[in-house]
Amino acid sequence: MKALDSIYQVRNGRRSKRVSSYDRSGLNKDSIAIPAGEVRALANIEGAGIIRHIWITINCADRMIRRNAVLRMYWDGESEPSVESPIGDFFGQGWGENYNFASLPLAAAPQRGQALNCYFPMPFGNGAVIAVENESSEPIESFYYCIDYEEHDELPEEAGRFHAQWRRELTGADPIDGENEGLELVPQQPNCTDAGNYVFADIRGKGHFVGINYYVDNPSPMWYGEGDDMWMIDGEAWPGSMHGTGTEDFFNTAWCPKEIYSHPYFGCAKVNGETGFLGRTHVYRFLLEDPVYFEQSLRASIEHGHNNVLTLDLATVAYWYQIEPHQPFAKLPGKEGRQNMPILNLHDIHYWRHEYRKAFGNGTTLWGNEWRPKRD
Protein backbone atom coordinates (compact mmCIF):
# COMPACT_ATOMS: atom_id res chain seq x y z
CA MET A 1 0.00 0.00 0.00
CA LYS A 2 1.37 3.40 -0.99
CA ALA A 3 1.62 6.16 1.62
CA LEU A 4 -1.12 8.27 -0.03
CA ASP A 5 -3.00 5.39 -1.58
CA SER A 6 -6.25 5.99 0.30
CA ILE A 7 -6.23 9.78 0.51
CA TYR A 8 -8.76 10.11 -2.31
CA GLN A 9 -11.36 7.85 -0.67
CA VAL A 10 -14.40 9.68 0.71
CA ARG A 11 -15.60 7.80 3.77
CA ASN A 12 -18.88 7.81 5.64
CA GLY A 13 -19.35 7.97 9.39
CA ARG A 14 -16.47 10.33 10.22
CA ARG A 15 -16.41 13.93 11.40
CA SER A 16 -13.29 16.04 11.98
CA LYS A 17 -13.01 17.78 15.36
CA ARG A 18 -10.42 19.69 17.35
CA VAL A 19 -9.92 20.48 21.02
CA SER A 20 -7.55 23.41 21.55
CA SER A 21 -6.49 26.18 23.91
CA TYR A 22 -7.87 28.96 21.71
CA ASP A 23 -9.11 32.12 23.42
CA ARG A 24 -12.87 31.70 23.82
CA SER A 25 -13.29 35.48 24.06
CA GLY A 26 -12.06 35.91 20.48
CA LEU A 27 -8.86 37.65 21.54
CA ASN A 28 -5.36 36.26 21.11
CA LYS A 29 -4.59 34.71 24.51
CA ASP A 30 -4.68 31.23 23.01
CA SER A 31 -3.26 29.29 25.94
CA ILE A 32 -4.10 27.97 29.38
CA ALA A 33 -2.12 28.25 32.61
CA ILE A 34 -1.34 25.24 34.78
CA PRO A 35 -0.41 26.28 38.34
CA ALA A 36 2.33 24.42 40.17
CA GLY A 37 1.11 21.10 41.54
CA GLU A 38 -2.14 21.05 39.57
CA VAL A 39 -3.66 18.86 36.86
CA ARG A 40 -5.41 20.17 33.77
CA ALA A 41 -7.53 18.09 31.39
CA LEU A 42 -6.66 19.09 27.84
CA ALA A 43 -9.39 16.95 26.30
CA ASN A 44 -12.42 15.10 27.61
CA ILE A 45 -14.02 13.56 24.54
CA GLU A 46 -17.18 11.47 24.48
CA GLY A 47 -18.14 8.63 22.16
CA ALA A 48 -15.91 6.83 19.65
CA GLY A 49 -13.13 8.22 17.54
CA ILE A 50 -9.43 8.39 16.71
CA ILE A 51 -7.02 11.11 17.79
CA ARG A 52 -4.87 11.86 14.75
CA HIS A 53 -2.54 14.67 15.81
CA ILE A 54 -1.41 16.45 18.97
CA TRP A 55 0.56 19.71 18.99
CA ILE A 56 1.86 21.37 22.19
CA THR A 57 4.20 24.19 23.18
CA ILE A 58 5.02 25.30 26.71
CA ASN A 59 6.23 28.50 28.39
CA CYS A 60 7.52 28.01 31.93
CA ALA A 61 10.35 29.47 34.03
CA ASP A 62 11.34 25.94 35.07
CA ARG A 63 14.00 24.74 32.59
CA MET A 64 13.20 21.16 33.61
CA ILE A 65 9.49 21.45 32.85
CA ARG A 66 9.73 18.75 30.17
CA ARG A 67 10.64 16.27 32.93
CA ASN A 68 8.54 17.91 35.65
CA ALA A 69 5.25 17.91 33.73
CA VAL A 70 3.58 14.52 33.22
CA LEU A 71 1.35 13.57 30.27
CA ARG A 72 -1.39 10.99 30.85
CA MET A 73 -4.06 9.54 28.54
CA TYR A 74 -7.08 7.40 29.39
CA TRP A 75 -9.34 5.47 27.01
CA ASP A 76 -12.94 4.29 27.41
CA GLY A 77 -13.44 5.44 30.99
CA GLU A 78 -10.48 3.54 32.44
CA SER A 79 -9.10 4.54 35.84
CA GLU A 80 -5.45 3.67 35.07
CA PRO A 81 -3.65 5.64 32.34
CA SER A 82 -2.66 3.95 29.10
CA VAL A 83 -0.07 6.68 28.53
CA GLU A 84 2.11 8.02 31.34
CA SER A 85 5.36 9.86 30.71
CA PRO A 86 7.18 13.12 31.35
CA ILE A 87 5.96 15.27 28.51
CA GLY A 88 9.34 15.93 26.90
CA ASP A 89 10.43 12.30 26.90
CA PHE A 90 7.12 11.25 25.30
CA PHE A 91 7.56 13.62 22.35
CA GLY A 92 11.26 12.80 21.86
CA GLN A 93 13.27 15.11 24.12
CA GLY A 94 15.29 13.76 27.04
CA TRP A 95 16.69 15.25 30.26
CA GLY A 96 14.25 18.18 30.26
CA GLU A 97 16.09 19.66 27.26
CA ASN A 98 14.59 21.16 24.13
CA TYR A 99 16.19 20.21 20.81
CA ASN A 100 14.92 19.39 17.32
CA PHE A 101 13.79 15.83 16.70
CA ALA A 102 12.26 14.36 13.54
CA SER A 103 10.58 11.00 12.97
CA LEU A 104 7.40 9.81 11.31
CA PRO A 105 5.16 9.49 14.40
CA LEU A 106 6.81 12.09 16.68
CA ALA A 107 8.62 15.39 16.19
CA ALA A 108 9.96 18.33 18.15
CA ALA A 109 9.98 21.17 15.64
CA PRO A 110 11.61 24.60 15.49
CA GLN A 111 12.07 26.95 17.18
CA ARG A 112 14.73 24.81 18.96
CA GLY A 113 12.36 21.89 19.36
CA GLN A 114 9.71 23.85 21.22
CA ALA A 115 6.81 22.60 19.06
CA LEU A 116 5.91 19.07 20.21
CA ASN A 117 4.01 16.92 17.71
CA CYS A 118 2.53 13.41 17.79
CA TYR A 119 0.96 11.57 14.83
CA PHE A 120 0.37 8.18 16.46
CA PRO A 121 -3.31 7.33 15.81
CA MET A 122 -5.14 6.79 19.12
CA PRO A 123 -8.51 5.01 18.85
CA PHE A 124 -11.13 5.06 21.59
CA GLY A 125 -14.58 3.49 21.70
CA ASN A 126 -16.24 5.23 24.63
CA GLY A 127 -14.43 8.43 25.52
CA ALA A 128 -10.88 9.78 25.78
CA VAL A 129 -9.19 11.95 28.42
CA ILE A 130 -5.81 13.66 27.97
CA ALA A 131 -4.37 15.44 31.00
CA VAL A 132 -1.15 17.16 32.11
CA GLU A 133 0.09 17.38 35.69
CA ASN A 134 2.50 20.19 36.56
CA GLU A 135 4.79 18.76 39.24
CA SER A 136 7.13 21.74 39.01
CA SER A 137 7.41 24.35 41.75
CA GLU A 138 6.84 26.92 39.00
CA PRO A 139 3.55 27.62 37.20
CA ILE A 140 3.24 26.86 33.52
CA GLU A 141 2.42 30.37 32.43
CA SER A 142 1.16 29.43 28.98
CA PHE A 143 0.38 25.97 27.64
CA TYR A 144 -0.76 25.96 24.00
CA TYR A 145 -2.27 22.86 22.41
CA CYS A 146 -4.31 21.48 19.54
CA ILE A 147 -5.71 17.93 19.56
CA ASP A 148 -7.15 16.88 16.20
CA TYR A 149 -9.45 13.86 16.13
CA GLU A 150 -12.16 12.11 14.17
CA GLU A 151 -15.56 11.21 15.53
CA HIS A 152 -16.57 7.73 14.37
CA ASP A 153 -19.95 6.06 14.46
CA GLU A 154 -18.14 2.95 15.63
CA LEU A 155 -14.70 1.34 15.62
CA PRO A 156 -13.66 -2.16 14.59
CA GLU A 157 -13.50 -4.59 17.51
CA GLU A 158 -9.84 -5.26 16.76
CA ALA A 159 -8.84 -1.59 17.16
CA GLY A 160 -6.06 -1.68 19.76
CA ARG A 161 -5.56 1.15 22.22
CA PHE A 162 -2.41 3.24 22.17
CA HIS A 163 -0.03 2.89 25.12
CA ALA A 164 3.22 4.57 26.16
CA GLN A 165 5.26 4.15 29.34
CA TRP A 166 8.33 5.94 30.69
CA ARG A 167 10.92 3.92 32.59
CA ARG A 168 14.29 4.77 34.11
CA GLU A 169 17.14 2.90 35.80
CA LEU A 170 20.64 3.71 36.99
CA THR A 171 22.30 0.49 35.88
CA GLY A 172 25.29 -0.99 37.70
CA ALA A 173 28.74 -2.17 36.66
CA ASP A 174 29.81 -5.75 37.25
CA PRO A 175 30.51 -5.97 41.01
CA ILE A 176 33.71 -7.98 40.46
CA ASP A 177 35.08 -7.07 37.03
CA GLY A 178 33.78 -3.51 36.90
CA GLU A 179 33.07 -1.70 33.64
CA ASN A 180 34.59 -3.85 30.93
CA GLU A 181 32.88 -2.98 27.68
CA GLY A 182 35.17 -3.30 24.71
CA LEU A 183 38.44 -2.76 26.62
CA GLU A 184 38.80 -6.42 27.66
CA LEU A 185 40.32 -5.53 31.02
CA VAL A 186 39.29 -9.05 31.98
CA PRO A 187 37.95 -11.84 29.76
CA GLN A 188 34.35 -11.20 28.76
CA GLN A 189 31.76 -13.48 30.29
CA PRO A 190 28.80 -15.02 28.44
CA ASN A 191 25.27 -13.82 29.09
CA CYS A 192 22.67 -16.56 28.65
CA THR A 193 19.75 -14.81 30.34
CA ASP A 194 17.86 -11.53 30.21
CA ALA A 195 17.62 -11.34 34.01
CA GLY A 196 20.09 -8.45 34.40
CA ASN A 197 18.98 -6.46 31.37
CA TYR A 198 17.36 -3.04 31.33
CA VAL A 199 13.64 -3.81 30.80
CA PHE A 200 11.88 -1.22 28.65
CA ALA A 201 8.55 -3.06 28.24
CA ASP A 202 6.75 -5.59 30.45
CA ILE A 203 3.29 -6.01 28.95
CA ARG A 204 0.36 -8.34 29.61
CA GLY A 205 -2.31 -8.85 26.97
CA LYS A 206 -2.60 -9.04 23.18
CA GLY A 207 -1.08 -6.41 20.96
CA HIS A 208 2.00 -5.21 19.09
CA PHE A 209 5.01 -3.10 20.02
CA VAL A 210 5.74 -0.14 17.73
CA GLY A 211 8.64 1.92 19.06
CA ILE A 212 11.04 3.28 21.63
CA ASN A 213 12.84 6.48 22.51
CA TYR A 214 16.10 5.59 24.30
CA TYR A 215 17.92 8.19 26.37
CA VAL A 216 21.36 7.23 27.73
CA ASP A 217 23.56 9.37 29.98
CA ASN A 218 27.02 7.80 30.12
CA PRO A 219 29.46 8.68 32.96
CA SER A 220 32.37 7.17 31.02
CA PRO A 221 34.10 7.87 27.69
CA MET A 222 33.65 4.14 26.99
CA TRP A 223 31.22 3.07 24.22
CA TYR A 224 27.82 2.56 25.85
CA GLY A 225 26.54 -0.01 23.37
CA GLU A 226 27.07 -3.70 22.66
CA GLY A 227 23.89 -4.44 24.57
CA ASP A 228 21.79 -7.06 22.78
CA ASP A 229 18.06 -6.47 22.60
CA MET A 230 16.05 -9.50 23.76
CA TRP A 231 12.34 -10.18 23.24
CA MET A 232 10.52 -12.83 25.30
CA ILE A 233 7.11 -13.24 23.65
CA ASP A 234 4.17 -14.93 25.40
CA GLY A 235 6.25 -16.19 28.32
CA GLU A 236 8.92 -17.98 26.30
CA ALA A 237 12.35 -18.73 27.76
CA TRP A 238 15.68 -17.19 26.74
CA PRO A 239 16.88 -16.66 24.02
CA GLY A 240 13.33 -16.03 22.82
CA SER A 241 11.97 -15.43 19.35
CA MET A 242 14.06 -12.31 18.71
CA HIS A 243 17.63 -11.68 19.85
CA GLY A 244 19.74 -8.75 18.68
CA THR A 245 23.45 -8.16 18.12
CA GLY A 246 24.12 -4.83 19.83
CA THR A 247 22.64 -1.49 20.83
CA GLU A 248 23.54 0.43 17.67
CA ASP A 249 22.36 -2.51 15.57
CA PHE A 250 18.91 -2.48 17.18
CA PHE A 251 18.69 1.24 16.43
CA ASN A 252 19.57 0.49 12.78
CA THR A 253 23.00 2.15 12.87
CA ALA A 254 26.48 0.61 12.99
CA TRP A 255 30.01 0.85 14.35
CA CYS A 256 29.52 3.09 17.41
CA PRO A 257 27.98 6.16 15.71
CA LYS A 258 28.34 9.65 17.10
CA GLU A 259 26.52 11.91 14.66
CA ILE A 260 23.03 13.34 14.27
CA TYR A 261 20.90 11.30 11.87
CA SER A 262 17.14 11.46 11.29
CA HIS A 263 15.22 8.77 9.42
CA PRO A 264 11.42 8.53 9.68
CA TYR A 265 11.80 5.18 11.51
CA PHE A 266 15.13 5.47 13.38
CA GLY A 267 18.02 7.75 14.16
CA CYS A 268 20.26 9.65 16.55
CA ALA A 269 18.46 12.80 17.64
CA LYS A 270 21.15 13.94 20.07
CA VAL A 271 24.76 12.86 20.53
CA ASN A 272 27.19 13.78 23.29
CA GLY A 273 29.79 16.43 22.64
CA GLU A 274 32.27 15.24 25.24
CA THR A 275 35.30 12.96 25.28
CA GLY A 276 34.55 9.63 23.63
CA PHE A 277 30.98 8.67 24.52
CA LEU A 278 30.83 10.60 27.78
CA GLY A 279 27.50 12.36 28.22
CA ARG A 280 23.98 12.26 26.79
CA THR A 281 22.78 10.47 23.67
CA HIS A 282 19.23 10.00 22.37
CA VAL A 283 18.51 7.28 19.83
CA TYR A 284 15.13 6.05 18.62
CA ARG A 285 13.49 3.32 16.60
CA PHE A 286 9.88 2.98 15.46
CA LEU A 287 8.83 -0.48 14.34
CA LEU A 288 6.07 0.71 12.01
CA GLU A 289 6.83 -1.73 9.21
CA ASP A 290 7.99 -4.51 11.54
CA PRO A 291 5.98 -4.40 14.80
CA VAL A 292 6.55 -7.08 17.44
CA TYR A 293 3.33 -9.05 17.90
CA PHE A 294 2.33 -10.80 21.12
CA GLU A 295 -0.77 -12.77 22.10
CA GLN A 296 -0.38 -12.92 25.89
CA SER A 297 2.66 -10.96 27.03
CA LEU A 298 5.89 -9.25 26.04
CA ARG A 299 9.09 -8.72 28.01
CA ALA A 300 11.46 -6.53 25.98
CA SER A 301 14.90 -5.64 27.32
CA ILE A 302 18.43 -4.67 26.37
CA GLU A 303 21.82 -5.26 27.98
CA HIS A 304 23.71 -2.26 29.39
CA GLY A 305 26.97 -3.27 27.77
CA HIS A 306 27.66 -6.89 26.96
CA ASN A 307 26.65 -9.00 29.98
CA ASN A 308 25.37 -5.86 31.74
CA VAL A 309 28.68 -4.36 32.89
CA LEU A 310 28.10 -0.61 32.49
CA THR A 311 26.91 2.09 34.84
CA LEU A 312 24.43 4.12 32.76
CA ASP A 313 21.49 6.39 33.43
CA LEU A 314 18.92 4.85 31.08
CA ALA A 315 15.46 6.30 30.45
CA THR A 316 13.04 5.10 27.79
CA VAL A 317 9.55 5.62 26.47
CA ALA A 318 8.03 2.48 24.94
CA TYR A 319 5.06 2.72 22.54
CA TRP A 320 2.62 -0.07 21.73
CA TYR A 321 -0.99 -0.97 20.92
CA GLN A 322 -2.99 -3.60 22.76
CA ILE A 323 -6.49 -4.78 23.49
CA GLU A 324 -7.65 -3.49 26.87
CA PRO A 325 -7.52 -4.01 29.77
CA HIS A 326 -3.80 -3.39 30.23
CA GLN A 327 -1.66 -4.24 33.23
CA PRO A 328 -1.43 -1.11 35.45
CA PHE A 329 1.94 0.59 35.21
CA ALA A 330 4.38 0.66 38.11
CA LYS A 331 4.15 3.92 40.04
CA LEU A 332 5.84 6.74 38.15
CA PRO A 333 8.79 8.14 40.15
CA GLY A 334 8.06 11.54 41.64
CA LYS A 335 9.71 14.69 40.37
CA GLU A 336 12.80 14.11 42.53
CA GLY A 337 13.24 10.66 40.98
CA ARG A 338 13.18 12.09 37.46
CA GLN A 339 15.97 14.66 37.79
CA ASN A 340 19.19 14.35 35.82
CA MET A 341 22.48 12.94 36.96
CA PRO A 342 25.18 15.65 37.17
CA ILE A 343 26.96 16.57 33.95
CA LEU A 344 30.60 15.41 34.07
CA ASN A 345 33.19 17.84 32.75
CA LEU A 346 36.92 18.43 32.23
CA HIS A 347 37.48 18.97 35.95
CA ASP A 348 36.07 15.51 36.65
CA ILE A 349 38.40 14.01 34.07
CA HIS A 350 41.34 15.78 35.72
CA TYR A 351 40.39 14.27 39.07
CA TRP A 352 40.24 10.84 37.43
CA ARG A 353 43.84 11.47 36.27
CA HIS A 354 44.78 12.54 39.80
CA GLU A 355 43.51 9.22 41.17
CA TYR A 356 45.32 7.38 38.36
CA ARG A 357 48.57 9.09 39.35
CA LYS A 358 48.12 8.00 42.95
CA ALA A 359 47.40 4.40 41.84
CA PHE A 360 50.75 4.35 40.03
CA GLY A 361 52.85 5.65 42.91
CA ASN A 362 52.51 9.41 42.34
CA GLY A 363 55.14 9.42 39.62
CA THR A 364 55.93 12.90 38.36
CA THR A 365 56.10 11.99 34.68
CA LEU A 366 53.19 9.55 34.40
CA TRP A 367 51.65 9.87 30.96
CA GLY A 368 48.46 7.83 31.27
CA ASN A 369 49.26 4.70 29.30
CA GLU A 370 51.18 2.91 32.06
CA TRP A 371 48.28 0.48 32.55
CA ARG A 372 48.85 -1.05 29.10
CA PRO A 373 50.50 -4.46 29.06
CA LYS A 374 54.11 -4.33 27.95
CA ARG A 375 54.80 -6.25 24.74
CA ASP A 376 58.01 -8.04 23.78
Score class of each variant (00 low, 15 high):
residue 45 I to F: 00
residue 45 I to M: 07
residue 45 I to S: 05
residue 45 I to C: 05
residue 45 I to W: 00
residue 46 E to Y: 03
residue 46 E to F: 03
residue 47 G to F: 08
residue 48 A to E: 11
residue 48 A to P: 11
residue 49 G to C: 06
residue 49 G to T: 04
residue 49 G to I: 03
residue 50 I to E: 12
residue 50 I to Q: 08
residue 50 I to D: 08
residue 51 I to M: 13
residue 51 I to G: 07
residue 51 I to T: 09
residue 51 I to E: 05
residue 54 I to C: 09
residue 54 I to F: 10
residue 54 I to G: 05
residue 54 I to S: 07
residue 55 W to N: 11
residue 55 W to Y: 13
residue 56 I to E: 04
residue 57 T to G: 09
residue 57 T to S: 15
residue 57 T to N: 14
residue 58 I to N: 08
residue 58 I to R: 02
residue 59 N to G: 10
residue 59 N to V: 11
residue 59 N to M: 13
residue 60 C to M: 10
residue 61 A to Q: 14
residue 61 A to G: 14
residue 62 D to W: 11
residue 62 D to F: 10
residue 62 D to S: 09
residue 62 D to A: 04
residue 63 R to Q: 13
residue 63 R to W: 11
residue 63 R to G: 07
residue 63 R to I: 10
residue 64 M to T: 08
residue 64 M to L: 14
residue 64 M to C: 08
residue 64 M to S: 13
residue 64 M to N: 14
residue 65 I to S: 10
residue 65 I to F: 09
residue 66 R to S: 07
residue 66 R to M: 12
residue 67 R to I: 00
residue 67 R to G: 01
residue 67 R to K: 14
residue 69 A to M: 15
residue 70 V to P: 02
residue 70 V to K: 00
residue 70 V to H: 00
residue 70 V to F: 00
residue 71 L to Q: 01
residue 71 L to W: 03
residue 72 R to T: 09
residue 72 R to K: 15
residue 73 M to P: 08
residue 73 M to D: 04
residue 73 M to G: 11
residue 74 Y to I: 03
residue 74 Y to S: 12
residue 74 Y to R: 10
residue 75 W to K: 05
residue 75 W to V: 10
residue 75 W to R: 10
residue 75 W to E: 12
residue 75 W to A: 14
residue 76 D to E: 04
residue 76 D to C: 06
residue 76 D to L: 03
residue 77 G to T: 02
residue 77 G to P: 04
residue 77 G to L: 04
residue 78 E to A: 11
residue 78 E to S: 11
residue 78 E to T: 09
residue 78 E to P: 04
residue 78 E to V: 07
residue 79 S to A: 15
residue 79 S to W: 02
residue 80 E to F: 14
residue 80 E to T: 13
residue 81 P to C: 03
residue 81 P to F: 00
residue 81 P to L: 02
residue 82 S to T: 13
residue 82 S to Y: 06
residue 83 V to Y: 01
residue 83 V to H: 01
residue 84 E to P: 01
residue 84 E to D: 02
residue 85 S to E: 01
residue 85 S to I: 00
residue 86 P to H: 02
residue 86 P to S: 05
residue 86 P to N: 06
residue 87 I to L: 02
residue 87 I to N: 00
residue 87 I to F: 00
residue 87 I to E: 01
residue 88 G to F: 01
residue 89 D to A: 10
residue 90 F to Q: 12
residue 90 F to T: 09
residue 90 F to R: 13
residue 90 F to S: 12
residue 90 F to M: 13
residue 91 F to G: 00
residue 91 F to V: 01
residue 91 F to E: 00
residue 91 F to W: 02
residue 92 G to K: 09
residue 92 G to V: 03
residue 92 G to N: 06
residue 92 G to P: 04
residue 92 G to D: 02
residue 93 Q to S: 12
residue 93 Q to V: 06
residue 94 G to E: 04
residue 94 G to C: 12
residue 94 G to S: 13
residue 94 G to K: 06
residue 95 W to G: 09
residue 95 W to D: 04
residue 95 W to C: 10
residue 96 G to S: 06
residue 96 G to P: 06
residue 97 E to T: 03
residue 97 E to M: 12
residue 98 N to W: 12
residue 98 N to Y: 14
residue 101 F to G: 09
residue 102 A to F: 15
residue 102 A to S: 15
residue 102 A to P: 11
residue 102 A to H: 15
residue 102 A to M: 15
residue 103 S to W: 14
residue 103 S to C: 12
residue 104 L to W: 14
residue 105 P to I: 07
residue 105 P to T: 08
residue 106 L to W: 01
residue 106 L to P: 08
residue 108 A to V: 05
residue 109 A to E: 15
residue 109 A to T: 11
